[in-house]
Simulated assay, not measured.
Amino acid sequence: MGLMIPDPDDQATLDVSAAIAVLQSRIEKAGLSLKESADFALFEKTVRSTEDKYLMEDFSPRFFDLHGTTAFWVGAVNSHGNVVSVQAAKVEDLKDRSLAEHWHQQQRRIFVDPNPQVRFGTEHAHDAYFMRGRIVYHGNLWLRRDIRGQGLAEPLTQLGFLLSLLKWSPDYLYGLMAAKSAEKGFGIRVGYRRFVPRGTHWEIAPGHIRPDDWLVYATRSDLHGLVKLILRTSAEDPE
């Protein structure tokens, strides 16, 4: 028998699972339990019961047929059984068009057609014109006020990133982030590695959409780098 060389992909999967376990234990130490689901009718109900109440169109069953092979959401629940955080992710297979072209088609259908005074621009984030392949959108991230500032936003968000990596091994994972949060470094802390100071371009934005969002994203290898970072820091600091 020759020496068996471990398959790097298998090793990577083990590493991602190990990093997810590290994040899970950090979150559970703070007294929260996690629940993952692909039931987006339940997601809508859960979001509507939070103080924020904002369900993004991208994760609304009214606009999209969301199911377990292409989307999931995660809720964090405190010891009283109250939901204190939610987030969601979904994957698109963009073989034949760029992310910018995909936005153009999708945003027009959701926001512009039903709302004639809204005007969608054409100068979207530069990188979005070059991003193709399996692309995950991560969004609808919400933390209840009383758990903010306790260092939970990072492990919760990273958990969503790594579940996406484990499920779909995407070419890219992206979000749209308020300029203020991006400039404060929140994106870097959670694991985004690339920043473009414009997201989708609106000439006249719908009332509830911020026109100052940045496109923030990570490549597959950036996400594997995040996995290594999580494992390294947990080895250095087992607490």
Rank of each mutant, 00 (worst) to 15 (best):
S25V: 00
N78P: 05
Q107Y: 15
V83T: 15
L165R: 08
F64I: 02
K167M: 06
Y174N: 06
D113G: 00
G133T: 00
K167L: 04
L42E: 11
N78F: 00
T200S: 00
R109L: 09
F120G: 03
D52H: 08
G185N: 03
K29I: 01
L14S: 05
G68F: 04
A235L: 07
L156G: 03
S164W: 09
R119Q: 15
Q87T: 13
R108E: 10
F63E: 13
H224D: 09
K35A: 04
I27L: 15
S181C: 07
V16H: 10
V77L: 03
K184L: 03
E154Q: 12
T200C: 02
F63R: 09
H102S: 11
F64S: 05
G185V: 02
D52T: 03
M1E: 05
K180M: 13
L55V: 10
E183Y: 13
S49P: 02
R132Q: 02
G175M: 05
D15F: 12
T13V: 10
P155D: 12
A41E: 14
L159E: 01
S33M: 09
I230H: 00
Y192R: 04
Q107E: 10
D146M: 08
G175F: 05
H126V: 12
R119C: 13
M131I: 12
W214Y: 14
M56R: 13
A76E: 11
R148F: 12
F59I: 06
A38G: 10
D93K: 03
N82G: 14
F43E: 09
M1L: 08
A100Y: 06
L159F: 07
A88M: 04
L159M: 06
P211H: 02
N140F: 01
W214T: 06
L156Q: 08
H124N: 13
S98Q: 08
Q158D: 02
K35T: 05
V118H: 14
F120I: 15
L3S: 11
K29G: 03
S37G: 08
A12Y: 07
I230C: 00
H80V: 10
H126Q: 09
V74K: 01
V77F: 01
T50R: 11
V136K: 01
E203K: 02
R148T: 11
V86Y: 04
E101C: 00
F130R: 13
Q158F: 01
L176F: 05
P197D: 15
H67E: 01
L215P: 10
A18S: 12
L176G: 00
T200D: 00
